[in-house]
Design a protein around this nucleic acid. Sequence first.
DNA 1: CATGAAATTATTTACCC
DNA 2: GGGTAAATAATTTCATG
Lengths: 155, 155
Amino acid sequence: MDELDSAIVRLLQEDARQSNRDIARKVGIAASTCLERIRLLRKRGVIRGYHADIDLGALNRGVQAIVAAQIRPLSRDVVDSFERSVAQLPEVLSVFTIAGSDDFLVHVSAQDIDHLHAFLLDRFTSRREIVGFRTSIIYQHLTKQVLEPLPDPHH
Amino acid sequence: MDELDSAIVRLLQEDARQSNRDIARKVGIAASTCLERIRLLRKRGVIRGYHADIDLGALNRGVQAIVAAQIRPLSRDVVDSFERSVAQLPEVLSVFTIAGSDDFLVHVSAQDIDHLHAFLLDRFTSRREIVGFRTSIIYQHLTKQVLEPLPDPHH
DNA sequence: CATGAAATTATTTACCC
DNA sequence: GGGTAAATAATTTCATG
């Protein structure tokens, strides 16, 4: 990850569909060189994928919430199975497994408040491993699309 | 948003860099038709952008946390200015503005625990509008890259 | 008016310096 | 890292139902 790689990664975070030729021109290298660098970044796992960012409203997902859940027992089996089964529910956007008084934060979206309520009643209230959960409606979610590398901690 | 649009949106969420020709072939329409549909989806704001997903470790961001913050007063000025200034800190990945006992959840990443601690001391402890915050280390974060449309609530 | 086929223009990619 | 040429893709035009 030298300066050229960082510049390429930044440009692909901004717009993953711009042409390799454009990226090459912006960072000041030949298209063939740029293509090879992108291929290596992908192979090394630095670039994990390219994804379209879709408006949640257009997917009938106008209401978002964060559900803070506590589960017991905190055994590997119960934790792993909770993560996997919750992540595959259609309403779930992401699952944070965290330290602290809550065990998980689950980011969910639904058509409206009624569907959110029904979802929580059907999928959370009934789960035996969940000993408690609190739901917070999300008014706004700002996401940074372009992340800069942080300074190397060894320098 | 008919079935064809949904199929195109799903494919672009899976891999935003696949060619228009491949997408057209997979959904069973002509390339020109597909290109026009994608253009309209973009114009209508259904597709908000295309972004490379980068490994946080490669960006020297190996440690993630969620900071739940309470601020006062909860006036528009203070809320707006908190959102904007926090979102532009390099360590911040996203900011949730929420209802409930906490006012914000801030998703952050840093090089390591020491840098996370320094970041919180420098950027949170010192802010006058913050009346309290709790930090939870993230062990794991599962994100769904492909979101299906939810059933229309009117039907 | 949306679709699809063909022609033109542009980009990607493999190979060698 | 760069240059070139063949393969591939994007884009425009225009005919069709």
